[in-house]
């Protein structure tokens, strides 16, 4: 599953790079496209299918549920949209010997995202970006908290957008690496303190 995400991620990055070359050649057209994009994207709402990767507690002791994300564009600098947003994703705990006696892991993120806008043509665009933010991992058993971990996260992202008149549909991939405050034996510091996810996202922008 993670490999499939990686392939999609690389493909989208490749498309983004290709579109960048195309844009260099057609700078004027690109600028016009960017101008068109600017006023039409204030809000984005999306579904998240998270997937833990690597050797950490999310990947080894949880199975993905789902999640939602929202973002609001509150500034545009050149072709970069500055977006503030939040995400909530859930996982089900599958190995309680590693994760503790909880049922679910909820992950909340607040982020600031810089999204670079590349128009492939009038209908399609590819948007690579990078976000930084805060993250909270909360384990629960029957709505009772079994402990929280806080930290910060860095998320390279890429989305492919289909633009209609007043709305855009998009899909994309987020690679998320989070660093969490952890007190444990040195052997397990990274296992609980550095989590990685690749998430498939799909949603709308308007």
């Amino acid at each position: 599953m993670a490999k499939n995400y990686l392939i999609i991620f690389i493909t989208l990055i490749t498309i983004a790079c290709y579109s960048q070359d195309e844009k260099t050649l057609e700078k004027k057209e690109k600028t016009e496209s960017a101008e068109k994009i600017k006023p039409k994207e204030y809000f984005r709402l999306y579904y998240i299918h998270p997937n833990g990767i690597g050797d950490n507690v999310i990947a080894k002791a949880n199975e993905p549920g789902g999640g939602i994300g929202v973002g609001i564009t509150f500034g545009i600098i050149g072709q970069v949209h500055i977006i503030g947003g939040g995400e909530l994703t859930t996982f089900s705990i599958t190995d309680k010997s590693l994760a503790g006696n909880a049922n679910d892991t909820n992950i909340q993120q607040l982020y600031l995202l810089g999204l670079y806008k590349f128009s492939v043509n009038k209908m399609f665009e590819v948007n690579p970006g990078l976000s930084i933010g805060t993250i909270r991992v909360n384990q629960k058993r029957n709505s009772k908290s079994i402990g929280r971990q806080n930290g910060f996260c860095i998320t390279p992202t890429v989305t492919a957008d289909l633009r209609l008149t007043n709305i855009s549909f998009f899909i994309g991939l987020n690679y998320n690496i989070a660093f969490l405050r952890t007190n444990t034996h040195p052997e397990y510091k990274d296992f609980f303190g550095k989590i990685q996810m690749i998430s498939l996202i799909a949603g709308i922008k308007f």
Partner: peptide, 12 residues
């Protein structure tokens, strides 16, 4: 009521 858990501490 209940145990006040500290999620950042992991005991093995």
């Amino acid at each position: 009521c209940g145990i006040d858990y500290d999620g950042k501490t992991k005991i093995i």
